[in-house]
Amino acid sequence: MNLIKNTLFPFLTISSLYFASAALAETPEQKGLAIAREVDTRDLGFGDSTADITMALRDQHGNERTRKMRNRTMEVAGDGDKSIIIFDNPGDVKGTAFLSFTHKTGSDDQWLFLPALKRIKKISSSNKAGAFMNSEFAFEDISSQEVEKYTYRYLRDETFEGTPVFVNESDPVDPKSGYSKLEVSIDKARYIPLKIDFYDRGERLKKTLILSDYTQYLEKYWRAHTWSMKNHQTGKSTVLTMDNWNFANGFTDKDFNKNSLSRIK
């Protein structure tokens, strides 16, 4: 789970040739891929970051529960990010921590620290379609996914709430994904996602994510402070708020291993 990157698209080391091909793209597939790569490239080099997360879970009757977490993320050159999430509530899970190494190819590595037993468990990362903390976010919605894990197709230009956007289709390559496709509305000027429609395996619209309250950090990197996910099939929704962003924390690999996980508070 990598909540820090505000984009659903990963890093890719890309040569200037790709920029050229983006401009000259002829097929919708080529243009879609070029847009995805540009989104990715613009977020390269953020280094590391921390943020406080509040997740409001609302059911169809309007009942609400709040979950609090903290996140630390470090960019890894040539691979997916390393991140830790520390859970601050409810009381019985407080202090539980989750370490994740995302990878461009192959399965991610994930470990869970259980504070009552002081036990670290390596866990399966196959649960892509499962709900994160009983929210409307699936694990795959908040993990750092790699360009190679989707195929792309540019659909159309559109305006979303007054902002010109590309609408790009992303089809998950992994059969364990819970989705047949995603339709991503990307701000043409800033190359950041503003809205994502998720379609289930039966091609029905399942969920819509609105990313808003973007702030720019280090004069380059845009981060959405509000992620609002609505499930059209159940009427439930989750609003995830990310505050207190801090960059340039000086994290190293030593801050993201089983030893640091066992010490985390």
Binding site: S124, S126, N127, A129, G130, N134, G178
Partner: peptide
Amino acid sequence: YTLFTLFNSNAD
């Protein structure tokens, strides 16, 4: 062995 999202529910 884990059966994730059993019967399309949240349960594992």
